[in-house]
Nucleic acid binder design. Sequence first.
RNA 1: CAGGUCGAUUGGAUGUCCGCUGGUCACUUCGGUGACGAGAGGAAAGUCCGGGCUCCACAGAACAGGAUGGUCGGUAACGCCGACCGGUCGAAAGAUCAGGGCAAGUGCAACAGAAAGUAAACCGCCAAAAUCCGACUCGUCGGAAUGGUAAGGGUGAAACGGUGAGGUAAGAGCUCACCGGCGAUUGGGGUGACCCGAUCGGCCAUGUAAACCCCAUCCGGAGCAAGGUCAAACAGGGAGCAGUCGUUGUUCGCGGCAUGAUGACUUCCGGGUAGGCUGCUGGAGAUGACGAGCAAUUGUCAUCCUAGAUAAAUGGACAUCGAGUGGUUUUCGAAUCACUCACAGAACCCGGCUUAUAGAUCGACCUGAAUG
RNA 2: GCGGGUGUAGCUCAGUGGCUAGAGCGUCACGUUGCCAACGUGAAUGUCGAGGGUUCGAAUCCCUUCACCCGCU
Length: 130
Amino acid sequence: MNVNRPPVNRSFGKQDRVVKQRDFDRVHQGKWFAADRWLVVKGSENELGIPRLGLSISKRVGNAVVRNRWKRAIREAFRNGRGDIPAGWDFVVRPRKGARLNGLEIARSLTNLSRRLVRQHQRSSARSGS
RNA sequence: CAGGUCGAUUGGAUGUCCGCUGGUCACUUCGGUGACGAGAGGAAAGUCCGGGCUCCACAGAACAGGAUGGUCGGUAACGCCGACCGGUCGAAAGAUCAGGGCAAGUGCAACAGAAAGUAAACCGCCAAAAUCCGACUCGUCGGAAUGGUAAGGGUGAAACGGUGAGGUAAGAGCUCACCGGCGAUUGGGGUGACCCGAUCGGCCAUGUAAACCCCAUCCGGAGCAAGGUCAAACAGGGAGCAGUCGUUGUUCGCGGCAUGAUGACUUCCGGGUAGGCUGCUGGAGAUGACGAGCAAUUGUCAUCCUAGAUAAAUGGACAUCGAGUGGUUUUCGAAUCACUCACAGAACCCGGCUUAUAGAUCGACCUGAAUG
RNA sequence: GCGGGUGUAGCUCAGUGGCUAGAGCGUCACGUUGCCAACGUGAAUGUCGAGGGUUCGAAUCCCUUCACCCGCU
């Protein structure tokens, strides 16, 4: 899929994750979110210049094995799609109720939702600025 | 070969690319980078028991409360395991049992039934003895009241041993024989639960302790979010009285100086939040050999090191093989296409129990058939 | 990770081992009314979360299991 593209940073270390309770609170208190059939994404700006990912998988999703599969799938989608995801934002992602696990769909959904969310923010701030 | 019983093991394999978390080594601009090697389970689960470890409490003992419950053994310990004993089920291999005590005391046993525990008379059976009435062939018959009777019927989950004989008005352990069960004494075997007997006794004792209770044995409380340690910011505590500033008391008043009290800043100390580090993985450890033991288990020796995350790593994509299901072709050997690959994810560590689990493999035993 | 609690009619709850498991609200039907509400009469409704065990008999006692809720950083 990414064979013909220039090499992108596909690592996913601790600095690329939302870790602190404070950061999660900031994202949840912000008003920016987007959703489709698969995922719900909430976002908030950070000052780091890179995108960060946080996961919120509740016990209702399934047992520990199912929850871990979701986390890995979303992380993998984030890692492989970093070139297409807007920088300078924290995203908290959770699976939508009733969604089935499918890696390709999740990857497409994650990039689309993150870009839509940032677009919304830009439109809104442009409107309030003018 | 068919049917069955019990137990054990395993739980996809290989390769390429891209990632994640520790470890060791090297480099480093101290942010990291590179190389090498490691990285989920039999249940990691439920949290139902038992321990280690840590902190708290504590003179000892008893009570209360809780748990366990055949015997002997194993173990660090257990509610676990092994062997054996007994009851029940099965033709057998085997399975299963909270398996101490209702003959210490108290309670409960609905409905039905006469009666649910020192018995009791609804139907039935009887009228010998004692009472009354009637009949007549005058000492028998019939009846009443009353009484006797637990053999039979019926009720119930359960009705006060069973069979036979004697006995009687009818009956009854009322008496006797045998059988079952109980108690006392006693012989033999076994460490013991218990087993095999002998003598005597009263004729017989309901069920329920996962009802209260009694007996025996065991148990201090909390848990790694324990505990230890380093320690921002804000607020506050203590010490010091050294320095600066402010307020105020001390001489009749004012001002200055001195001195006492107090507040702020500065100095030092302790507690301690966010957060970090530690506890944190080498242990009742794994494998093998030899020995003890029926076994559970255990002794000695040798070899090995095998996860340590913390918004929480152990993954994703592709290819080949393997297994299963379905379709097509078929020279019945197979070929080919599609789909699927159990239950489930460490969180301080062990020993058990319980529950979930696609498929594959192995062993022991029982019954039946055939052959020898 | 640790500790504690609750499951009974559609909903909220009672229920001493023993009759067909009850109450209130709700639902349905009929009556009343010109119509509705209220009222009256009657009716339907349960795997007592699930599976075993003890007992003659279990919603109740015991064991296992499932789901949900609460607390501890």
